[in-house]
Design a protein around this nucleic acid. Structure first.
Length: 423
RNA sequence: GGAGAGAUGGCCGAGUAGGUCGAAGGCGCUCGCCUGCUAAGCGAGUAUACUGGGAAACCGGUAUCGAGGGUUCGAAUCCCUCUCUCUCCGCCA
């Protein structure tokens, strides 16, 4: 959520920056609602002040017969107040739900552009492997090796669900452990294991709701949502809290499964593990001082990249342009891993700073000093990494001409010493 | 699922025959005084949001005692609904 006062005072500038996201208009109607709200507020509060002081006087008068006329008068005033309050509540609600649907302002360093074609290459690491034979896509490798069972997954649940078996299941688990160990032991994150279902307030706090309900799996009674990313429960750990300056930065990492409806992507990536309704992810989440967020985003992105370096998987890091960043994001780096089976780079991590956008929605604040006013923290997060896609990258990059797959050396202890997956 | 208890400021905890309660008291914290170490003692301060005024320091108004609604001139206090927490029973990984 954007700061109402900031919008009020910088309406044109804000609108201009929002439009770099590609939409037509974002703030139509704000001015009218805002002015109407303040008018109603002023009127109602004046009447309440009157009522308070007269009621006080009535209370101090022993002989109530002397103040009968005032009681009657205040009855009228209260009636008026009630009407004004109702009107105000309506306007408030309109304004609030309006603000909840306005996306974040792009960061000043976010490249301006329309689509993913305008994203900017920041750096690349490793050489895309040239295999001496025809590379197989991971779905063929996985089925041939008997470690990925797409048919059974579809039978058990439906499309975009997969059954992992044997070394495949073990590899997924090994990756989760490798990532968690790296981030906790060397990058200084605290591991948390949050609930996988959250309530509406949590989804609103991080920005998934109210706008993107159709992307979520929802339970009806009680009304809970399956998390689409650990960002949601982990960021909401501190919803409604005022943190101490000394607490910052707070760094959490969490393994969770993620559940996404993938509405609107029918027919896209229908084969293999790339786009599933349920996938595993290790997520990095930080609560930082506003002055630190830019630097911490760089650091966090580096933490995610480190996983790929350990696994010796070639990747590149892209700065997403204003037209391609997500609703809540101010700035996003995507890390894309090279997939020889498909001869392309695919997103394996997305690292974003949200500025105070989520913190304002979720009311996560800190005090600069003991007596200071609470200020909003900045939140940043990123995948470190998407586990299923990492498994895909390993299968495709480490495949051998005989159809077997070598295990990257960093992963072997986690695989009980296994060096190669064979049929 | 059944029965009961409860939700007050950073924490603990008063306040329920409605008015002087944004809320006693204690702890914690901040600042000052005092004390030739640490400690103790004394004094003052110590919620948040919105809103009006002001360059600012700050001053005023309104709201908030789990959430929402109701009764009333007036509600932390009365009524209703909901949420959450705790205890006991049942069930269960």
């Amino acid at each position: 959520m954007l700061d109402m006062k900031y919008i009020r005072e910088n309406l044109d500038e804000t609108e201009r920056r929002l439009r770099t996201r590609g939409g037509e208009s974002y703030l139509d109607g704000f001015r009218e609602l805002d002015e109407r709200r303040r008018k109603l507020l002023k009127e109602g509060e004046a009447l309440k002040a009157l009522r308070n002081s007269v009621s006080d006087e009535i209370g101090r008068t022993k002989d109530k017969s002397q103040v009968q006329d005032k009681i009657l008068e205040m009855r009228e005033v209260s009636h008026k107040i009630k009407g004004l309050d109702e009107e105000l509540n309506q306007v408030d609600e309109q304004l609030h739900s309006f603000l909840l649907t306005v996306p974040n302002l792009p960061h000043l360093t976010t490249p301006v552009g329309i689509s993913e074609n305008d994203n900017v290459l920041v750096r690349s690491w490793g050489e895309p492997r040239k295999l001496a034979f025809e590379a197989k896509p991971h779905w063929d490798l996985g089925e041939d090796l008997g470690i990925l069972d797409f048919e059974r997954g579809a039978k058990i649940t439906g499309a975009r669900f997969t059954l992992y078996r044997g070394a495949g299941a073990r590899l997924e688990r090994a990756l989760i452990n490798l990532m968690l160990d790296l981030h906790t032991d060397t990058h200084g994150y605290q591991e948390v294991l949050p609930p996988f279902m959250v309530n509406r307030d949590s989804m609103t706090g991080t920005g998934q709701l109210p706008k993107f309900e159709e992307d979520l799996f929802k339970l009806v009674d009680p009304e809970f949502f399956l998390i689409p990313t650990a960002e949601v429960p982990v960021t909401n750990i501190h919803r409604g809290e005022i943190l101490k300056k000394g607490d910052l930065p707070i760094r959490y990492c969490a393994y969770t499964p993620c559940f996404r409806r993938e509405a609107g992507s029918y027919g896209k990536d229908t084969r293999g593990l790339i786009r599933q309704h349920q996938f595993n992810k290790v997520e990095l989440v930080q609560f930082v001082h506003p002055l630190e967020s830019d630097a911490e985003l760089e650091a966090l992105t580096g933490h995610a990249e480190k996983v790929l370096q350990l696994l010796e998987l070639p990747y590149r890091t892209m700065a997403l342009c204003s037209g391609d960043i997500g609703f809540s994001s101010a700035k996003t780096y995507d890390i894309e891993v090279w997939l020889p089976g498909q001869s392309c780079y695919r997103e394996i991590s997305s690292c974003s700073t949200f500025g105070d956008f989520q913190a304002r929605r979720a009311s996560i604040r800190f005090r600069e000093d003991e007596k200071g006013k609470p200020e909003f923290v900045h939140t940043i997060n990123g995948s470190g990494l998407a586990v299923g896609r990492t498994l895909v990258a390993i299968l495709e990059n480490y495949q051998q001409s005989d159809g077997s797959v070598l295990i990257p050396s960093a992963l072997r202890t986690y695989m009980g010493g296994m060096e190669r997956i064979t049929r």
